[in-house]
Nucleic acid binder design. Sequence first.
DNA 1: GACAAGCTGACAGTCGGCTGAACGGCGCCG
DNA 2: CGGCGCCGTTCAGCCGACTGTCAGCTTGTC
Lengths: 237, 237
Amino acid sequence: MLASGRGDAYCGYRFREHGLRILLIEDDAVLGEAVRDYVAGLGHAVDWMQTLDDGRTAARTVDYDLVLLDLRLPDGRGLALLTELRRAGAVTPVIILTAHDQISDRIEGLNSGADDYLVKPFNLGELGARMLAVARRYAASSLPVLEAGRLSIRLADRRVLRDGEPVDLSGREWAVLARLANRPDAIVSKGEIEEALYAFGSEIESNTVEVYVSRLRKKLGKDCVETLRGIGYRLGR
Amino acid sequence: MLASGRGDAYCGYRFREHGLRILLIEDDAVLGEAVRDYVAGLGHAVDWMQTLDDGRTAARTVDYDLVLLDLRLPDGRGLALLTELRRAGAVTPVIILTAHDQISDRIEGLNSGADDYLVKPFNLGELGARMLAVARRYAASSLPVLEAGRLSIRLADRRVLRDGEPVDLSGREWAVLARLANRPDAIVSKGEIEEALYAFGSEIESNTVEVYVSRLRKKLGKDCVETLRGIGYRLGR
DNA sequence: GACAAGCTGACAGTCGGCTGAACGGCGCCG
DNA sequence: CGGCGCCGTTCAGCCGACTGTCAGCTTGTC
């Protein structure tokens, strides 16, 4: 699968850094939810399955761009699914999630065709970084750069330039911007941004989104984000 | 991923004298351990695999800088792996380890694309020397000099200049810097740096990476390394 | 004008990261 | 052999960035 990168077979393969279809197979409710929300916040579409069976079905049905696979599942070993997929010729990149005491699993996982692994408990930011790395490995080159007014937003390497000058953004700030930049021209509701920022359960009862929009504007300029009163926000132009 | 298709910013081959990622494929426990410890002591990160299968997986997945390959393995001949790699277009230097009675293997090995060989039992110092020699041979093929702010990082000869002045770095310090310099613009998570430092299994639970980043900053200037809170580090601009 | 929706400055708590200091191992040198 | 210095690692305490919240203000709509 990793084989010769530019081979004809892969010519059509495109790895975008956002808007990916991602399959998450993880039985732990808390971790699963956290990962799902985080990854969704990066602008990807996440299907979260909690059993091996569901995961298998999903993987067979949908053409995912990336699979996040827990190795310890209630109804079987995740490794089995991985080998199965590879045997069936799937080239989809797979990142394995393991507990920290399962070194042998990790080796076996790489053996079975995984592209990378993460050791639990892991930092969500690190997950993002690994995903990017795997993405890079697959992407021929050319990072998507979004030009919006005086800004250029480089989703791939998490950078924003204003008039060519790099601007420092905090994690949340970037998350909000990325959520907007993910679909330029689209209107994103406050609720959607909130969902991208926080895990499902964590009820937030304040104007956090507004605050972050405000902070973004201070750093990036008034016009960087457009307000559509009563509807949501949109990336400025 | 020894294989060819290297999509991103790696231009050309790189060989440093410290902080290399080295793959050791050797089934003998005693010898393996000795070599691993010795090489790790030189400041490299060693992944030690005891079977051909694991070795193959590792070699395909990770970008090693050097492979130490025993030719007699429980589950097959090391030579097969070597030819396989070469056929896949891998340029990673390979040093072969053979018993003293396997002259034909040695010849065949060099024929198959090995860069050097060592006859068991060998002196660890000699191993070091061979590694250096191979390193030099590759370094000669001119590596890019990375310019990052006031720094120029010469991966080829393990040197860093700050405003043109050479700076002395210790082994680990260099390893961290090199890991970052390997992929300029990419965000490297703390875990990845740790991996580059300590190889697979050795779980380290302290802030070593932070310490080295701190020391690097002291020597190279505040801005040489950028912190992305909760995510990782990146080479300064 | 009245009301709703959105904006923003301020603030305190928290968490991650930074760094000085100390310790032990190792090699080098006298 | 003993002393010395460098290096790697650990630890603890400090520090600052980031965050969520709120109050009071502005803007927009009817």
